[in-house]
Structure formats: C-alpha cells, structure tokens
Amino acid sequence: MIEFTDLTKRYGKFTAVDHLTLHVPARGAVALWGVNGAGKTTMIKCLLGLLRFDGRITVDGCDVRRQGRAARQRIGYVPQELAFYKEMTTYDMAEFYARLKDAPTTRIATVLEQVGLGEHQDKPVGALSGGMKQRLALGLALLADPPVLVMDEPTSNLDTAARSQLLQLLVEVKAAGKTILFTSHRIEEVEALADTVAVMESGRLHFTCSSGALAQRIGLRTQVKFMVPGHQIDLALDILRGDGLAARRNGVGVIVDVAHGEKARPIHALGRANIEVIDFELE
C-alpha cells in the first residue's frame, strides 16, 4: 500500500533520511521506532508532500510527488503537534476539513460520535482538552474514510487515561482494516497496534521485526523503583542480586533494572523472601 523506495532527505550537509526503502502492506500496521532525530517524522512529512526529497514514495500506486492530491486523498493524518484553528467549533472544524477532503458532511456526526466528541461539537476547539483534541485529530483523519492512517506520535502529549482511551480507538480502527503507519516511543503502543516495527537509526533503516520481538531485539530494559520497609532494604538488595537482578539502593527503596516483560520478577523474588513491597513505580 505504501512504498518508500530509496528515500533520501538532506538538510544541507545533514542527511535526515538516508536511502531508505520500506514497504507497508495493505491492512498492515507498521511502527517507525527510533530515538529523536532518527528520521521518523521526516519520513512522514515526505510522504505527505510537505518536504522535498530524493527517491520515490507511492501510496496505493499514486506517486506522492506527481499525484500528490490523489496520494493524500488516501491518507488520514494525525500530526504530532496539533495545529487547529482554535476559534472554530469542533463541528465547523470537521465541516471545513470534510469539504477539503470531499467527504460527505453526513459523516461528520458519525465520526465525532466514534471518537467520543458528539457532545462537544459546539465547543470551540481551543476549549477542548489535550485528549479531546487528539481524538478530534483522529476524527478529522477518518472523515473521508481513507484506507491509510498515518500518525506521528499520536499519544505523546496525553495523560495515561487519555492515552489508553485513544489507543483503544486506534485498535478499533486497525480492526476495521486500515493500513497504519505511525511513529512512537512507547513500547506498549507499538505492541498493541503494530504488526511490524521498522527500527531507524540516524536516518537509516536499521532492521525490521515483529512488534512482539522489538523489546528483545533492542534490549529494552525498564527500571522499577520499589519502596520497602527501611530495615529490609539491605535484605531486599541481597535477595534481588541473588536472583541475578541488577539492584541498587535509592533513598527509601531499591531500583532494579529489568528486561522488558520481566517487570514482575523482582516482586515475586521479594514476595518469596517475605519482604513487604509498600509501593513501586516504573521509570
């Protein structure tokens, strides 16, 4: 559905994307993974025709450079930084973009309901919360029912509740058969949504893997901070280290470095030693 062929984008002497070739299959979901500056957003901007580039990008056979409108007609885009006309009401905003996308205005109410904004259609966009704005962005992207959804860090500015709500919506959208290309820093988002992950490094495609294998391939680790009773901290450290975990003291508790998918392991170890875990948090 989406083909990046030998995509290269340079800013002067800096190469943001370097001879990248990637295929996103129809109805597939591909996540672009990488640190800031890896070239993920640049790829998306090239796909949308916002940046000039070398190489070739097609969407459903439409060349982005030569058939830009046709290519974008097939894409619903959710940007990283929401840029809306704040004075417009939610409905007016949806109507404006529906007209640009040549989508029937009868779809507006359906889409606003779908993203949970049916009750907020008369509110100015500037008065919506961050989570609502992000859902509005998703709603606008779905207005013309495009086959492709492209999202740049769709949950980066949301709190936990709003993120979970949006992720649920995205899972439903994926189940409806959309082709999805998105960037993310969050492993749980990638695991929930993506089939394949394209790991990028310095503008190059480092490797691709299934979303389930990502954490292991990149050696993703998590630091878990445990609060235990003060008189049991030394014992807790001994137990954890004895279990092969990298643990160290941190004020009133201990910090343990664990592999992704093993976050419960220290809890079990401490439980077996009858050490009370008062609280814990992930970093």
């Binding site: 974008r72 940007p79 840029a83 640009l100």
Partner: peptide
C-alpha cells in the same frame, strides 16, 4: 508559525 499551514497542506489540496 501556528503549524496550521503544514496540516492544511497535508490534506488532499494543492
């Protein structure tokens, strides 16, 4: 400056 132009140009418009 507001970022709305990039979003607008990302739509099926020329």
């Amino acid at each position: 400056e507001q970022g709305t132009l990039a979003y607008l140009l990302a739509q099926p418009v020329t």
